[in-house]
Design a protein around this nucleic acid. Structure first.
Lengths: 156, 156
DNA sequence: ACTATATAGTTAGAAATCAAACTAAATGGA
DNA sequence: TCCATTTAGTTTGATTTCTAACTATATAGT
């Protein structure tokens, strides 16, 4: 790949650029969401699976409000997601001993198992990816996307 | 910026990488969608605005099926979007003279005007961006995102 | 201590989207 | 020509998400 010529675009060019960027990102989100959704087991949605994964990777005991902030959804949406997961028996929601307004979310053993199984079900989807989109490329653009996400998050 | 060390990651690392990538992309899509949605005028949704923009930039006369494919939504969703835009008087949907099953979508003058106004309403959102996320960075990652989108689209 | 404000979570109602079933028209093979 | 298959668009019902209003609890200023 030839080195990028980092010439500063005009404001109009920049606007075009940002629109294209968000359009691509929107479509990728849609396509990847659908794709993974179809592969997931236990009737898990991506939102539900992501929540379980979050709790496994970063530990559980989070409050619904912090989870909502982490995934950038409203608290109402998080209420719904948690109720679905609780109904499936994959999480337990306890009252917070230190704050009567608040709750704490914990994984159950079936919840951990379900996440593992769902993850396995996603492997066939993931292993196809490197053919069309090498992991090195993913690694290259990930920092920029993080930066964009953080900026959008903090300047809301 | 230091040059990237493009060491090939292990399969497990690659999976992590892809998950992070799609999670970031999902959150950015959510955040940017909400942000632009709020700014849009005429009660336009992002889907509706994107469709008008598509027709302005690439010309109109598209069939609903091709539009659905372009935006990666189901034909049912496109039916809904087109009905909303037609109700607002921003598009006209004519029968296709060559294929009685098909239709053709055309912008109206109010539709063009609405898109222009909506675009203007988005400018204040856009001009904030370069402070946190320079356009050169957007330009750098855009080709990779296009590549990913195209791959996801064709290998569905 | 009291009151105003902020925060946690839920709920109700609206909107967008999807999958699947359906109708109508075109296409292609026997 | 005729029938099977494909394609275009719509509709239906379910699901997810949002906004906004609401209750309950905590916090901070006077």
């Amino acid at each position: 790949m030839p080195p990028k010529q980092a010439k500063t675009p005009s404001p109009a060019e920049a606007a075009e650029l940002y629109f294209s960027l968000f359009l691509e990102i929107g479509i990728i989100a849609q396509l990847s969401g659908n794709r993974f959704q179809r592969a997931l087991s236990h009737g898990l949605t991506m939102a539900q699976f992501s929540l379980l994964t979050h709790c496994i990777r970063l530990g559980d005991g989070w409050t619904p409000a912090r989870l909502a902030a982490a995934f950038q959804v409203t608290r109402g949406t998080m209420t719904n997601t948690l109720q679905k997961l609780e109904a499936k028996g994959f999480i337990r929601v306890d009252p917070d001993p230190d704050d009567a307004r608040s709750k704490r979310v914990f994984l159950t053993a079936p919840g951990r198992a379900a996440q593992e199984e769902a993850l396995k079900a996603l492997v066939p989807e993931i292993v196809q990816l490197p053919a069309g989109f090498p992991p090195t490329l993913a690694a290259e653009i990930l920092p920029a996307l993080e930066r964009l996400r953080i900026w959008l998050d903090t300047n809301r």
